[in-house]
């Protein structure tokens, strides 16, 4: 019974992450439903080695990747170099970002970058937790996060000018 209660209490976070990954409300809830059905069916195999929520997130992420292999969304493989900065969108650096722009920009991120950025920025996971959930090395996670943030910056019209940080592969004058 306790596992079921823990599964139930994880539903809001699973829905939030799924919605941010997929945008579409119904498709996101389909993904959560699938994840919950898998988890409930396998609950007797759950060995209690770690938080139930992390197990659920791993199921959700695996199912999301299965779906995505089948139906890669547009925006896949957009290289940052190919993105045009639209000067009209340059905003006041002191103000918040326009939510619609951020939402559209998130949708254009490659899937691996979107998964990584959302698990950290939205779900508040630590880098170690996030790497574990996504089943990638921490270094890979860091480079995906850096690329996601840089791409998002360009796509929201706040692209880097002279203030680019030194880092692997990103050196500029």
């Amino acid at each position: 019974m306790r596992v079921l209660d823990e599964i139930e209490s994880a539903i809001p976070a699973l829905r939030r992450y799924a919605r941010a990954l997929m945008r579409d409300r119904d498709r996101a809830d389909d993904l959560v439903q699938d994840c919950l059905e898998r988890a409930v069916a396998n609950r007797h195999l759950w060995r209690g080695d770690g938080p139930v929520q992390a197990w659920l997130f791993r199921i959700l992420i695996n199912r999301y990747r299965d779906l995505h292999r089948r139906d890669p969304a547009p925006g896949h493989l957009v290289a940052i170099e190919d993105l045009a900065v639209e000067p009209v969108q340059f905003g006041d650096p002191e103000s918040g970002l326009a939510l619609r722009e951020v939402r559209d920009a998130m949708a254009r991120l490659p899937v691996d970058q979107r998964e990584a950025l959302l698990i950290v920025a939205l779900e508040g996971k630590t880098l170690e937790e996030a790497a574990g959930l996504l089943e990638i090395p921490k270094g890979t996670l860091m480079s995906r996060l850096a690329r996601a943030r840089a791409t998002l910056r360009v796509l929201t019209g706040r692209g880097p000018g002279a203030d680019v940080l030194p880092g692997p592969g990103r050196e500029r004058k």
Partner: peptide, 11 residues
């Protein structure tokens, strides 16, 4: 700012 926008959107 990005984090705040993401949380505002999906939180």
């Amino acid at each position: 700012l990005q984090d705040a926008a993401i949380r505002d959107l999906y939180g």
